[in-house]
Design a protein around this nucleic acid. Sequence first.
DNA 1: GTGAAAGCGCTAACAT
DNA 2: ATGTTAGCGCTTTCAC
Lengths: 341, 341
Amino acid sequence: MNKRVTLKDIARHLGVHVSTVSRALDPQKQSNLSADAIARVRDTARELGYRPNRLAAGLRTRKSMSVGVMIPDITNVIFPPIVRGIESVLEPSGYASILVNTDNLAEREARLIQVLRDRGVDGIIHAAALRDDPTISWAAEEGLAVVTLNRKVDSHKIPYVINDEEDGIRKIVDHLYKLGHRKIAEIAGPQNLSTGLLRHEAFIKTAREYDLQVDPDLIATALHFDEDEGKKCARRLLTKDTPFTAVICANDRLALGAIVEFRKDGLRCPEDVSVTGFNDMPFLDLIPPGLTTIKIQQHRAGQTCARRLLDILVPNDQPIVTETILPVQLIVRGSTGSPKA
Amino acid sequence: MNKRVTLKDIARHLGVHVSTVSRALDPQKQSNLSADAIARVRDTARELGYRPNRLAAGLRTRKSMSVGVMIPDITNVIFPPIVRGIESVLEPSGYASILVNTDNLAEREARLIQVLRDRGVDGIIHAAALRDDPTISWAAEEGLAVVTLNRKVDSHKIPYVINDEEDGIRKIVDHLYKLGHRKIAEIAGPQNLSTGLLRHEAFIKTAREYDLQVDPDLIATALHFDEDEGKKCARRLLTKDTPFTAVICANDRLALGAIVEFRKDGLRCPEDVSVTGFNDMPFLDLIPPGLTTIKIQQHRAGQTCARRLLDILVPNDQPIVTETILPVQLIVRGSTGSPKA
DNA sequence: GTGAAAGCGCTAACAT
DNA sequence: ATGTTAGCGCTTTCAC
């Protein structure tokens, strides 16, 4: 428990005042100091092993130089790249990230936002926003800088960075259509998340454009974005007895679950049914039959979002970009093929 | 930018002194306060929407109630469960986690440790320790509470939580031996990481116990724990022309890479060569041929490590446990079988 | 049981 | 170009 070196120590050492030391160490303020003094302070600072106490500085400047990063669940493989993308921008700018997992639970999210505020975060990158999210809207109104990632909040005007969900679904539908599919089912994602909603709406819209029937029996809505719900939804589609030759799933995990469930009934993918995902999770290429999916740029999304937040945190001449939609890419693998007969 | 409610505000509101308010809000200090005062403070605190400023409190108490979590790379699938395990213990205890990725770079690690210290973290959970790690040893000596996870530091006496690497390798060797393998190759991990070293040493030791030859030509050492190095090492083993029927890989990713490389030469797994991994990554069960591997309890390891750190941070009567070795489990899948002929 | 006062380490007016 | 002073919001001795 060595007590740490403070500005005061350096000041005493040099026989100058703390504020001189403070100024000498601040690149912004060095202009009005003698070059000599700056050098001497720097030297003894290094010599004594001085390290600034950010808590104290933050208390004074009301800037903690830290941001909260809220995600649903870091064990969900699509989030780690996002987190690193965020870090790759924030860390070089001197910001630390406090990471919290909400599990998509509104109540947990609300508590964690408080925790982050208590710690004086300068802003929040929110990759776990719910469509109806009073807590984060409130936080934004309170003056906390917030940018949402992957999702957007319905009512409130919070800047967001999302992927082009509609284009992704269109690419999928187009791909299946060109393969000859006309009876396309959908396993939709949770409708309380903007990704779930946007992908579903995009499916409906695109299906109409392609003159495909949109039979309610061919739509199953998942409660969570996981394999288990994928299985359940696949089962529901099977029991409806309405024929289909392809299933568009709102994300990869739903698709993986669906494929497993179909196989239980002897339906092989892609021979009997084509299945598509969304996200392009890591290792997906190694899992047979190779899921056709939409690749989203997670790392870049994280970076972009972090930059948007920095734009707010350190105001510059540019106007603030409130909406960013990143392009997506179709990845065709073995899970899609032409329908038989 | 609404200015936040402070103790002073509550005090003014109630016509009492700040210190009274402070005491009333501290469960520890409530004993010597009138029940009435406590109630009134609590009420107005809630009413005004008071939230404590942890930075200010931390400055005074020299406790930030935050800990640094250092990992090599969160995009490596074995770390997210660990991180959640840590959070599941720390968060309920009022600690926030600042997550940083070191990429196993000593220089980056050193800088990040400084960053964490500057932010006044009370302790560090270090899942990215290098075997020779002067920076973290120094931090520990400086009085920072440190526990390493998955790995241990050679020289310094820092408490650690690791998996039973030796038992894992023994279980693998035993499994292969019982299948009939006698010529077993090894793709060892990076020897500057304790996992790499421990698993390699365990292999040598166990091989001797089982009276297997330990031919240097049958050992390839990877520079990183990734697929690419797995391929390179597999290639090196193939070029040596020393026959083997099985390969023990120091982790799953090396194994996945090796299988791909073997296949290039027409060697099928497990028909021509059995391959094993270590870690039991998520989705491994879905990737053919299904890797036989050692399952480690990542979530539990994270929890355990966080508890060890808390034991140091909030001293209790118990003595501090410096060494924790968690049990591991053999998972047999399709990548191992009997050698032919 | 409560108030007064000091101070954690730093920054930012304001002086000189 | 440097020193002085005050104070960020909180906790904690010491009085009374």
